[in-house]
Design a protein around this nucleic acid. Structure first.
Lengths: 144, 144
DNA sequence: TGCATATCATAGTAATTATGTAGGAATTAG
DNA sequence: CTAATTCCTACATAATTACTATGATATGCA
């Protein structure tokens, strides 16, 4: 029941971008240093975010990345779900709807559905803006 | 963000035991056949449950396992947490309390804490008895 | 006593996933 | 032209997962 490092790093990357007050592109190198995450690993993660249209990129000197939309318009769920593929607690819930051949007889599926709803309830209710404005966080330095 | 098969199998094993009306010991072989799970794999899982005092065992002919307490006294959380070790979504929450050196500055820890609370809220509120009495489940056959 | 049926203990293994690294091509500002 | 950057794809490695295998130990019963 763990969030992968890719998912956690993606959130920190997005939070780092959201924390940038100006509308300029930020190079991965900078983020890499601030977050202490390998630049090569960040490249892969930001590539997914870019293809999904979550961030905009600019190549060449003085290039980098910035959020495509205001931080208020991203939820934690959007970001995690994009990077992780999904957040469902069991494989049989990955493919819609109720694909398990024994769904009707399953004693435990109700548990997984309720866990799924609970997790979604949390991640879909927190925006990137709330993450950044959290007084708890002056920096984004936590290893997670 | 997946529950391991061990966790899922443990829940099915416990549900199978809880579904047994009489107070007799049930051999793993039976459960193995009903649940279509390798008996050797079940042995490992039930061993953990046994050492924790969740089930009682009887060796030899006509031996097997049965619940140590009424099904009402087990929550899904107890069982999953025992088998999985823990259900926290990030490693830095595994060791109490707030062991991460940058906890105070972490922007994302709040997300993980809320996910954790949400998951615990679900699994700690469902008992084994509720699982078995669920009209949804006549059998416990779902692969999950 | 001897055998069949169980649990109990520990080690091994194959496959998958997670977590990165490496190298270099393409693009662009100055 | 050059330096800085994104972009692309393959490779490497470590950890975890999900079993499998072997055999010891205990028990009831004929």
């Amino acid at each position: 029941m763990k969030i992968s490092t890719r998912g956690r790093y993606a959130l920190r990357l997005m939070a780092d971008l959201a924390n940038n007050p100006n509308d300029e592109y930020i190079a991965l190198k900078e983020i890499s240093q601030r977050q202490e995450i390998s630049i090569k690993y960040l490249e892969q993660i930001v590539s997914t975010l870019c293809k999904a249209g979550y961030v905009k990129s600019s190549r060449g000197v003085a290039g980098g990345y910035k959020l495509a939309k205001p931080a208020e318009e991203y939820t934690v769920g959007m970001i995690l779900r994009l990077i992780e593929g999904n957040l469902v607690p069991v494989k049989c819930m990955e493919n819609e709807p109720n694909c398990c051949p024994r769904y009707e007889k399953c004693a435990t599926i109700g548990v997984w559905e309720r866990i799924n709803d609970a997790v979604n309830g949390v991640v879909d209710s927190i925006t990137l803006a709330e993450l950044v404005n959290n007084p708890h966080s002056v920096e984004f330095g936590c290893k997670e």
